[in-house]
Amino acid sequence: MTGAIPPCQVAVVLASPADPVASAQLLATARRLATVAGTGVFALVTGGEGAPHPDATGADAIVRFATACDVTDPESLLHAAHEVVLRARPRVLLFAHDAAGREVAPRLAARLGAPVITDCVDAHIDAAGTLTAIRPCFSAKALSDWSVPAPHLAIVTLRRDASPGEAASAASPPPDGGLVLPSAPAPRLRVIERHAPPPGELQLEAAEIVVAAGRGVGSRQDFQTAIANGLAKDLGAAFGGSRGAVDLGIVPQELQIGLTGRVVSPRVYIAVGLSGAPQHMAGCSGARTIIAVNTDPRAPIFGYAHLGVVGDYRAVLPSLASELRRLAPAR
């Protein structure tokens, strides 16, 4: 049964409702692709019949489930995306490169035998209809272009900060495209417990200033004193860490920044006691200014940083924080 959605459109699997900015960026990229290709954009929403879908603003139409889909279960999302492809035959299917997208996109590609390009920072379509997506590789030390000629479906996941300038233009939520997907089968994995720390901490991706701790910070306690309750608090900055810091329990795993952690692009990134391994830099190379504090003048981080202080952070940070307080007492 096919609904009212014409084929060859650009389909968007919206990001988690907790991250509307990511969804907006997906829709903006989708719109750009669709305009070149002369088609439209529709979005898959996960709420059931009648649920509001503010995140889909900017799409021409939506498709939805008969009953709400569990967005935390990648298998349900996979099922939904698969149904969308079978029934609506989009040309491009966009996911956010978040935990769900990382898993679902390649699985869907395998299920369909379709090409997949993940973690892209940009995508475009040329006059001949060839889609080209650009993704960093080799720990962000290189960029690669991947293309899929028309009329093949291309599955693409987009990095969150891929097109920070773009924003949706349409104002009102899009109409229902009339395609209602059957509910997902029962998940094969059974979640017994969920652990998530209270969200109180500033969202890393949205922060203007990020202070990142490395193994050199030494201990959770030192981190709390010098960074969490020190510099980061004074600056109103979010904080995260390298894998070295996560390994030592200095920061929790979910705040790891890098290739296998989160990707941030703040205005100012302050790297404290971290060496600047390529896999870490892959997560912060979008920062406008990088400031490094490290005891070792040969640490690779000084090769990426715009400003550097050679020295023990235990001495540098307190004097930095108190001088900043003196210079800008309003904070």
Partner: peptide, 30 residues
């Protein structure tokens, strides 16, 4: 039908680092 690699180019992330001077680490922090 797999996606085809059509270009690979280096991305220079390196920056010219301005090192902050100062006698002691505290001075450099200030």
């Amino acid at each position: 039908t797999a996606a085809r690699l059509t270009a690979l180019r280096p991305r220079d992330l390196s920056a010219e680092c301005e090192l902050i001077d100062g006698e002691t680490a505290e001075d450099r922090g200030m």
